[in-house]
Nucleic acid binder design. Structure first.
Length: 673
DNA sequence: CCTTTTACATGGCGTCCGGGGGGC
DNA sequence: GCCCCCCGGACGCCATGTAAAAGG
């Protein structure tokens, strides 16, 4: 992989976003998005007076999401219906970042093309037959309500206006449809025009809190179950936002649009396009966050979680359930986050255009299915979704990794606390565990000898399956449970300044921040290796840590500027980029003293391969193979041999260290591009 | 044959209720 | 004896993936 110096954001825009005139972004759009992250000076983001410095007034952010689990109960429902669109000069930002190495190194166009030349590639990124992302024109007011595939003149407000009286959510009223229809019509992939009157420079910076987990799924082509009654997403969408005006009011919602025009089928262990997507799908495609509308301070104070958002294939559900997003099975979708500035009463001020910002995270793409196709995805879901603990019957039996720093939910984790948004943000331990990425999977992803390929066919037994999370424990990685933050004590982006001073810890700033933002509950941290670890999340200047740092995307003037904190290019930025390719740089990282400590954080925040698992993986140990099986017989020697979780905990740290040492090999694997 | 639907088992949380212990 | 608090069990609910049946 060729790495190029940072390209100016404007260049990126002109080349990547503005020059696209085909109906769809080229087949590798997703990959491009994953690898290209224009880098700008953080100062650009401060174009406007820092909202954080402003005095907060009229805050109405005390609503407890838990009190409004349903759209019907959400405050301000009535107001939302009054929202009017601001379609002119909308400040829309396409936020494409996944934290790839591109955060630091931008791929040349040629590389981009190449990367996108393999539409069926499932690894490291899923097949992107055809465009991976919907395209839309900022200049097109219809983007918010285009009825697929035809863009209608409807407007954002009209959509809102269509909301059923009983539901404050646009869901029922949002005739949201696929946006990629825009591209069908040849609309520019991205369209920014500084000449647009009223265009407000991008203010918000958003990052996907649970991005590492998303990436894990993304590697295998994420699948999301859709049912008639609705199924929650897992991983669910969770964001942290900064750069909003603390006193201004915003509506934040997610819509799900077709990522490409294809109908997909899982054949031969991989997803392949099969015919055209059904574009005549009706139903709600929007999920308004229950807290909407609310102040910027509210949105920035905590994590914005969409854990209650449900996916359904029941078209009728769109009329009576704002929580439901109607999708079609075997279609690929792309969720998007929209931030709309509104008046205090929740109405949109049409006199001030450019108050809508859209953020797209390619790694959150998924294919809607009624039954899991790829067993890898199934296993990932089981291993990471606390609600699926019942299927981890080998969870605590065969894995002997050092689970002191478990990254994945333990059997004692609370699924609800992890998922329930709002007040339970303060109980973010749940979220940490739930959305957090265990290390184990990475081992297989990074195994030099087993380049992750397409998922196995469901009829095919696991031959290279996944290890249980427990096995994936990284001895050195601090468990999210051990990262503690005073409840409701948000670690704002400003806290990132700590990155400048602390070099002892490498970590996932994004994750930490998200957790902090969520108000991670303080937990006793008896573990020596982790106890006393400060709340602060420190990056390693060497680039070792912070693989998934907050990635900001903002727009300065007409320029879309995305950057990953810590990008090496922007030396002034203390953050480090968090990318898949970043892993490849691991080998370049200078040792950080003790193996386990500095690396702990990075591992914890990233999906590093747990030493224990890696070693097994690399050695093709029988245990590893067994671990990959969905179910293990308790009588299995490998299982009974380490039946107690405690046993794993008392494993000599020496073993962990030894295993950790082996990790380098895996990191190195990706180093060679 | 493929996809979708449905019933089922599992796990966990919240609520309710009763029992036990302690204080007044 | 009364009241309060704590604890634990029962129950309901929710969410999950699995497996079989049903549908096209």
């Amino acid at each position: 992989m060729q790495l190029d110096p940072c390209i100016s954001p404007s260049m990126m825009l002109s080349k990547k976003f503005l020059s696209v005139n085909s109906s769809y972004p080229h087949p590798g759009a997703s990959e491009l998005a994953l690898h290209e992250h224009p880098i700008i000076s953080p100062s650009d983001n401060l174009e406007r007076s820092s909202p954080l410095k402003k005095t907060t007034r009229g805050m109405t952010n005390q609503s407890d999401p838990d009190n409004f689990p349903d759209s019907k109960e959400a405050p301000g429902d009535g107001q939302r219906s009054k929202l009017s669109p601001v379609l002119d000069g909308v400040s829309e930002i396409r936020h494409n970042f996944d934290g790839s190495a591109a955060d630091r190194y931008l791929l040349p166009q040629s590389s981009q093309s190449q990367s996108s030349a393999a539409p069926t590639t499932m690894f490291p990124y899923p097949s992107q037959h055809g465009p991976a992302h919907p395209t839309f024109s900022i200049g097109s007011p219809s983007r918010y309500m285009a009825h697929h595939p035809v863009i209608t003149n409807g407007a954002y407000n009209s959509l809102l206006g269509n909301s059923s009286p009983g539901s404050g959510y646009p869901g029922s009223g949002y005739p949201y449809t696929q946006q990629y229809g825009h591209t069908y019509q040849g609309a520019p992939f991205y369209q920014f025009s500084s000449a647009q009157p009223g265009l407000v420079p991008g203010k918000a910076q958003v990052y996907l809190c649970n991005r590492p987990l998303w990436l894990k799924f993304h590697r295998h082509q994420t699948e999301m179950i859709i049912t008639k009654q609705g199924r929650r997403m897992f991983p669910f969408l969770s964001f942290n936002i900064s750069g909003l005006d603390p006193t201004a009011h915003y509506n934040i919602f997610v819509d799900v649009i077709l990522a490409d025009p294809n109908h997909w089928r899982f054949q031969g262990g991989k997803w392949v396009p099969c015919g055209k997507a059904d574009t005549n799908v009706q139903g709600n495609r929007v999920y308004m966050h229950p807290d909407s509308p609310n102040t910027g301070a509210h949105w920035m104070r905590q994590e914005i979680s969409f854990g209650k958002m449900k996916l359904t294939n029941n078209k009728g559900a769109s009329n009576n359930n704002g929580q439901m997003v109607v999708l079609q099975s075997l279609h690929k979708y792309q969720p998007r986050l929209h931030v709309v500035e509104v008046n205090e009463d929740g109405t949109e001020d049409s006199s001030q255009p450019g108050r809508v910002q859209t953020f797209t995270f390619p790694e959150t793409q998924f294919i809607a299915v009624t039954a899991y196709q790829n067993t890898d995805i199934t296993q990932l879901k089981i291993d990471h979704n606390p609600f699926a603990k019942g299927f981890r019957d080998n969870y605590d039996t065969i894995y002997t990794g050092c689970d002191l720093d478990r990254l994945t939910p333990s059997p004692n984790d609370s699924p609800r606390s992890q998922i329930v948004p709002g007040a339970r943000y303060s109980m973010a331990t749940s979220f940490l565990q739930d959305q957090f990425v265990s290390n184990y999977a990475k081992s297989r992803f990074h195994h030099p000898g087993s380049v992750p390929g397409p998922g196995t066919d469901r009829s095919v037994p696991h031959t290279n399956g996944l290890l249980s999370p427990q096995q994936g424990e990284d001895p050195g990685a601090p468990s999210p449970q051990r990262w503690f933050v005073t409840p409701n004590n948000r670690l704002d982006f400003t806290a990132a300044s700590a990155y400048d001073t602390a070099t002892d810890f490498a970590g996932n700033a994004a994750t930490l921040l998200s957790y902090a933002a969520a108000g991670v509950k303080a937990l006793p941290l008896p573990t020596a290796g982790c106890a006393g670890r400060p709340l602060g999340y420190y990056s390693d200047p060497t680039g070792w840590g912070a693989r998934s740092p907050p990635q900001y995307c903002t727009k300065t003037g007409s320029v879309l500027s995305c950057w990953a904190p810590g990008t090496r290019v922007a030396s002034s930025n203390p953050y480090l980029s968090g990318t898949e390719e970043a892993d490849t740089l691991a080998s370049d990282r200078s040792p950080l003293g003790e193996d386990t400590k500095p690396k702990d954080l990075s591992d914890s925040s990233w999906i590093e391969t747990p030493p224990s698992i890696k070693s097994m993986d690399s050695s093709d140990s029988g245990i590893y193979e067994q671990a990959k099986r969905r179910r293990l017989s308790p009588s299995d020697p490998a299982v009974s041999g380490s039946s107690s979780p405690l046993k794993s905990e008392v494993l000599p740290s020496r073993d962990c260290e030894k295993n950790c040492a082996k990790d380098l090999g895996y990191y190195g694997f990706y180093t060679h591009t």
